[in-house]
């Protein structure tokens, strides 16, 4: 299926990637080529086939329920590029 400009704009918003209007046409063409190509899967009869959710045939193991890590505030904040205020990450104001 061909993707139009409006669809590109919608998924760009969902993905939180700014796509300038001038680029939407080109991107729509690019993505349409890929989507059309992946659509060949519709030829495959998958009636009654379980979708694979894990390639490893094993049961997830349980870990002992105890704290093994923590108290690493400075490590966690060390890479903050925002003007960290004290012990917090900062973002643009979200409450009016």
């Amino acid at each position: 299926m061909a993707l139009d400009k409006a669809t590109v704009a919608r998924i760009a918003t969902l993905a939180r990637i700014k796509v300038p209007e001038a680029d939407q046409e080109r991107l729509a063409a690019d993505l349409s080529t890929i989507v059309t190509w992946i659509e060949q899967l519709s030829e495959v009869d998958t009636t009654g086939v379980e979708p694979m959710t894990s390639v490893a045939e094993m049961t997830l193991f349980m870990r002992e329920d105890k704290v093994t890590d923590g108290n690493r505030r400075d490590d966690i904040l060390a890479n903050a590029t925002s003007p960290a205020r004290g012990a917090f990450f900062t973002v643009p104001k979200v409450v009016e």
């Binding site: 993905a15 990637i17 925002s82 643009p92 979200v94």
Partner: peptide, 20 residues
């Protein structure tokens, strides 16, 4: 927000979109 590049925006969503 927490690490890597940050490109400012007027709102939080705009900051995400510009950064990415």
């Amino acid at each position: 927000v927490r690490f890597g590049l940050r490109v400012p925006g007027a709102t939080l969503d705009e900051m995400y979109e510009n950064t990415r």
